[in-house]
């Protein structure tokens, strides 16, 4: 469902170029990409999410070729098909946990429809997912800045899952969690993702969780930075 072929990219004015050889992700597959900091992780993710425009080669998700889309269409595509979990600071502080989750459907009609069809409404879906990921009703009612980091990351996961996007990108979402909590978080995320056959692209510099995934790939095996 995700395919990258002979892609090149350079930041405007930069003296180096990123070259990405073949990389592919199957539907429902959970892939761990190992990338130490400075290896071009952020660049890879901004190319996959369509925030940055590559120079040559191709990248396609769900048979949609990114180079044919306008910036606006890419933003819409991201809203419709990709859930994203940040390393930390995932939540907008002035919104409730439920509202933060509902934000995942805010810019996507498709995801709003899917969530409504499955749960009755976006809000109900948000709360159901939060409970499924282990948040109590009391925690859901709290202002989000009073939640623990682990709870905040679960809210972020619920947002990425709501409306069943085909791909979830997780950018080291467990780095701020302790060991036991990490595994629990990953397992809960997988459980929900498997329900919808959602693919997961998990990027981290920490290999302790790697064996939980279907496949492990080192970023350096398909992505290099070359000085021009």
């Amino acid at each position: 469902m995700l395919a990258i072929n002979n892609l090149t990219f350079s930041y405007p004015g930069a003296q180096s170029q990123f070259v990405l050889h073949d990389f592919a992700l199957a539907k429902g597959e959970h892939v761990f990409i190992y990338g130490p900091s400075g290896s071009g992780k952020s660049t890879l993710l901004s190319l996959i999410t369509g925030v940055q425009q590559h120079n040559s080669g191709s990248i396609s998700i769900l048979d949609t070729v990114f180079s044919t889309l306008s910036q606006k269409q890419k933003d819409r595509f991201r809203a419709d098909h990709i859930g994203y979990i940040f390393q930390q600071f995932n939540l907008i502080p002035f919104l409730s946990a439920t509202e933060n989750v509902a934000l995942g459907c805010e810019f996507s009609k498709i995801r709003t429809e899917k969530a409504t069809a499955k749960y009755g409404s976006v809000e109900k879906g948000a709360n159901t997912l939060l409970v499924a990921l282990g948040l109590s009703e009391q925690n859901i009612a709290k202002p989000v800045n009073q939640l623990s980091i682990g709870q905040q990351q679960r809210v972020a996961a619920a947002r990425a899952l709501l409306g069943e996007p085909e791909l979830i990108i997780a950018d080291e979402p467990t780095s701020a969690l302790d060991n036991d909590a990490r595994e629990e978080f990953i397992n809960q995320l997988f459980e929900q993702a498997n329900n919808n056959h959602t693919s997961i692209l998990f990027v981290s510099h920490d290999q302790t969780l790697a064996n939980l995934f279907d496949r492990q790939v080192a970023l350096s095996s398909f992505m290099q930075e070359k000085v021009l």
């Binding site: 910036q71 933003d75 819409r76 809203a79 600071f89 939540l91 907008i92 805010e106």
Partner: peptide, 16 residues
Amino acid sequence: RRELAILRSVGASPRT
């Protein structure tokens, strides 16, 4: 800027 990045991640365009 954090708020803006989160909005971008859920599909908000720069114009939004």
